[in-house]
Amino acid sequence: MKVLQFTIPVPLDKSIIVQKDVLPYFYPHLHRHQEIQLTWIQQGEGTLVADNNMHPFRPSEIYWLGANQPHIFKSEASYFQPKSRKKIVALVIFFNPDGELAGFFNLPEIKVLKNFIQQHQSGFKVPPEHATEISSRMLKITNSSGTEQLLQFVELLKQLSGCPDITPLASGQRAQPVSEHEGIRIGNIYNYIMHHYDKPITLEDAAKQACMTPQAFCRFFKKHTLHTFVSFLNEVRINEACKKLTDGSYDNIATVAYTCGFNSITNFNRVFKSVTQRSPSEYMNSYFQSV
């Protein structure tokens, strides 16, 4: 998907780019770049869209995004309020294994790490039990330079390659490539749904955002996202529900259901199980046990 193709500025004397973001909210548009991206969420919450899959994100989580993988860390709607005092903080490492580092990754001694990178082009979330050691290594990379930074980077890749049970952020069939204009249109639709998921949204409402008839919109959306409008809306709502169920700010499951745009608890339970393969209470129990 050609969505706002970015070129990460690379200093002449560096092949590994370290970036600290402190902003009102994450960059709000779908985009991709040649560099692999490792993002440690230090502050902020929302929904990560990677290819056509959604994942709620929270502080202390770390995500690996593959080269040219379309993605967006979409901050929660409250971050965009005019008087919001919220902010996001993230530490990000970029590197391009086919750029300045290509010769390094072609060394026979680095074959295991190169294979690891090639096997995870769809990205992954660092398992929670390994987040502390990976974040510590990211800090060492941030606080070093030259040869020492490169050595710390190799150690980081070794630690990541040793993580068991890595689940890809995206799996299965990929959507067809689209033009930049179409990509921006899809991004605008995503943005609209993510900002209005808690309200009744009709197919006609979404089609109007894309300046299309409902019939044309259905074909366009399914072709380029592999989702129907309803399935995408349901996934957004369930992702938001997962965050609300586990952040301790709501008294009961029914309240969460209604604040996420569902008009009945029965429908919420049915959709929740179809998306997560668990009931809301099972999801909560599993989450708190792992934490």
Rank of each mutant, 00 (worst) to 15 (best):
253 I>G: 04
38 L>D: 14
53 N>A: 14
90 A>S: 13
186 I>F: 01
244 K>F: 01
210 A>N: 03
194 M>V: 02
192 Y>P: 08
236 V>N: 06
132 T>C: 04
142 T>S: 13
157 L>M: 11
88 I>C: 00
5 Q>S: 00
153 F>L: 00
66 G>K: 01
182 E>T: 08
230 V>T: 12
278 R>K: 10
277 Q>Y: 12
247 D>W: 00
278 R>A: 12
282 E>S: 08
186 I>M: 02
219 R>A: 10
255 T>F: 13
139 L>M: 10
8 I>P: 04
87 K>H: 05
235 E>G: 07
278 R>C: 11
83 K>Y: 10
49 V>L: 09
211 C>N: 14
37 Q>K: 15
257 A>Y: 12
104 F>N: 03
227 H>A: 06
86 K>C: 04
19 Q>W: 00
291 V>I: 04
187 G>V: 02
6 F>P: 05
74 K>W: 11
101 L>T: 06
127 P>M: 07
137 R>W: 00
73 F>M: 03
27 Y>N: 12
114 K>R: 15
238 I>N: 08
27 Y>C: 08
267 N>G: 02
86 K>N: 00
218 C>W: 05
50 A>E: 10
20 K>S: 02
174 R>M: 14
225 T>N: 03
271 V>H: 09
142 T>C: 10
158 K>G: 10
19 Q>N: 06
43 Q>I: 07
37 Q>D: 13
46 G>I: 02
169 L>E: 12
166 I>K: 11
15 S>T: 05
112 V>N: 11
276 T>Q: 11
64 W>Y: 05
89 V>K: 08
203 L>R: 02
208 K>G: 08
232 F>Q: 01
90 A>Y: 02
219 R>P: 05
143 N>Q: 15
282 E>G: 01
208 K>L: 13
260 C>D: 07
166 I>D: 06
